[in-house]
Design a protein around this nucleic acid. Structure first.
Lengths: 228, 228
DNA sequence: GTCTATATAATGATAGAC
DNA sequence: GTCTATCATTATATAGAC
């Protein structure tokens, strides 16, 4: 049904070059099973010998670098041509986009889990998007200003993305090839609490915030000691 | 200075049984480098032969199970005797506790990253604590009630814990043996945005929440189609 | 309980034919 | 470009002496 279609980094297209087939197979395997997976499995998926993988990419490390680059490139490309609508529809639009690139998303999640430079690059990328989105919202008057915009952008990005990772641990995707149902479960599970928290907050009064602010501006004895 | 002290799962106490020494060495290695680490390294840390590790735990899998059990047991023990103070001091108190059990915390973070049953057990555990904390807060009138308390507890736990994982990817601890400075950086980095968000929310009006609620109670056509 | 020595399987990587 | 055959290394795990 979709066999003839050209989805970047997705199902194997028989007409692609071996190099691309290997890379796409690697992205799928790495995404589904983590970076511990062997070259033999990847080679088998791509329908080539293990030696050819090394011939094209030099080493496993080189293969991973190629996957990283390709994933980042596709993300940049998708981002460049996506119309960033504001409002709840945006989320749904992006959802549809995401489902289309399931292997990329899985690879991405694994990369953040694994840490390292790729994780930083991805998170910095998401933070950049969030920075724009928040700044626009504040300018338009739909989002409250913060006492520290950069810290808020960082927190929103990390907790949002990290929340997905936590959800993945609690409810692992059954099929990494089709993350759709899993993403839908996630959205349904966190939608209400997010909307509530972002609209109404959690505390009934300002005491905790005020306590924190005075704590920071005038730290108690043993904290002052440390910086002395 | 601390050599004679008895910190569960912490620095090697020469008087402990080999079995315990191996297990503690494993917790430290697994926590610092992940579960890919070899038995040889663990055996060397514990000052025993690799064969003895297998003798005591049967397999690497068995060793990991023993580590899991021990970590869960220590967490339960600490939790049981901790006085759960309400307010910002609670966080600070728990911080001090956490620093004391750095190897356990690192192991825990790795476990959640790795997924599997241990990750579920840990997250369920944290959710149980959060459930109590939130229920008490709502009863005391310091926390707002939610339209779905369970979903909120889940979201707060996952995003909170996941935020730490994300932070770890962005700013990896330099020394897993002493997570103190790293945890302090994290707390300083997220303290203000959390207090702001929990007190004031993010949106300036209720439109997003209302849109979401009406979306859920009366889904558009293609969503209704799916459930038909 | 603890060791040395070893079995066995899998890994990433190389050499060289085609 | 692509393969087969193989190497060197490392991994977990076992056997058996002490």
């Amino acid at each position: 049904m979709r066999s003839a279609q050209q989805r970047p980094g997705a199902a194997p297209a028989d007409d692609a070059t071996s190099r691309a087939r290997i890379r796409d197979a690697a992205i799928r395997r790495f995404g589904a099973e983590g970076f511990g997976v062997g070259l033999r499995a990847i080679a088998a998926d791509a329908g080539v010998s293990p030696a050819l993988v090394l011939h094209h990419f030099g080493s496993k490390e080189g293969l991973r670098r190629a996957c990283d680059e390709h994933v980042l490139a596709v993300i940049a490309e998708v981002k460049a041509r996506s119309v960033t609508a504001a409002g709840p529809e945006m989320v749904m639009t992006q959802m549809a986009e995401i489902e289309q690139y399931a292997p990329l998303v899985a690879y991405q999640l694994r990369s953040v889990l694994a840490g390292g430079e790729m994780a930083k690059a991805l998170l910095e990328d998401f933070m950049a998007s969030a920075r724009t989105w928040v700044a626009d919202g504040v300018a338009a008057g739909t989002l409250r200003p913060s006492r520290d915009e950069e810290a808020r952008v960082r927190y929103l990005t990390l907790s949002g993305y990290g929340g997905i990772l936590g959800w993945m641990a609690l409810d692992p995707p059954e099929d990494f090839g089709d993350l759709g149902p899993w993403l839908r479960r996630y959205m349904e599970g966190v939608g209400l609490p997010i909307m509530e928290l972002f609209t109404e907050g959690l505390f009934t009064d300002r005491r905790m915030l005020d306590a924190y602010l005075s704590y920071v501006s005038d730290p108690p004895a043993d904290e002052a000691q440390r910086s002395a």
